[in-house]
């Protein structure tokens, strides 16, 4: 396995450590797909795409035959691995809503201490639509948000209670950032791990939600 070289790769690498061999995973477009670059040794996952396939294998590279009619959830040309399969949208969302996807990974505008997620609409701004995100978070066995800990202005993205339009209510299980791994539990958000170069105090200061701090906060390792 390759080692992460920047903060975004750290987040992807730590998120990939949640994957277990044989898992069906749905990875949001953008940063979540980077998790595949950091699969732990011995772990092979099957990538679900909500437009109707399991077994996506990334974009065609130089010299690859251009696969007709295989696209990812962003509409981009993709490959299908051996053993992959295609199906219609109805089957796809039955599979998603019915709890057959092991792990969904996606980004956030805000996530709160109850695990409610806002990632599709900013009040006052035009929205592009939620696509399949609301179905994915309502149905997956485990939902992981990967995000920078704060927004570009330095405001916490993990808040006590978000008042943004929701994608899903009480749906997030884990939040992975460049600073911490937070487990959303019925008791509240638990700070399970922090990055090597930070402190519990710094993470608490940069988090809007009131964190539960166990005695043994681990250090994120890669």
């Amino acid at each position: 396995m390759r080692k992460p070289t920047n903060e975004r790769e750290m987040i992807a690498c730590r998120t990939a450590q949640f994957f277990q061999d044989g898992n069906i995973v749905n990875l949001g477009i953008g940063m979540p797909t980077q998790c595949l670059d950091f699969l732990p040794d011995g772990v092979d996952v099957w990538v679900d795409t909500e437009n109707g396939a399991i077994g996506l294998a990334g974009a065609p590279g130089e010299g690859d035959e251009f696969p007709v009619d295989i696209v990812d959830a962003g509409g981009n040309p993709s490959k299908l691995r051996v053993g992959g399969c295609c199906f219609d949208s109805f089957t796809s969302f039955g599979y998603i809503r019915g709890g057959h996807v092991d792990i969904t990974v996606l980004g956030a505008y805000e996530v709160d201490g109850e695990g409610s997620l806002a990632n599709w609409m900013i009040p006052g701004k035009a929205a592009a639509g939620m696509g399949g995100a609301m179905d994915l978070v309502s149905g997956s066995k485990i939902t992981i948000v990967m995000t920078m800990h704060c927004d570009k202005k330095g405001n916490p993205k993990i808040v006590q209670k978000t008042d943004m339009p929701l994608t899903g209510w009480k749906v997030v299980d884990y939040v992975v950032t460049e600073l911490a791994v937070i487990h959303i539990t019925p008791e509240g958000p638990v700070l399970e791990e922090i990055a090597e170069n930070t402190t519990v105090e710094e993470v608490v200061a940069k988090t809007g939600a009131k964190l539960i701090i166990p005695d043994n906060v681990k250090v994120m390792s890669f």
């Binding site: 969302f93 609301m134 179905d135 309502s138 149905g139 339009p165 994608t167 209510w169």
Partner: peptide
Amino acid sequence: PQGSLCEKVRAGGAGIGGILTPTGVHTP
């Protein structure tokens, strides 16, 4: 939502009066 869209159309095509989905509860 994408899955609800497909289910709504399925209901329309299958003579079903509607569907119950958890998708979108507590959202706009």
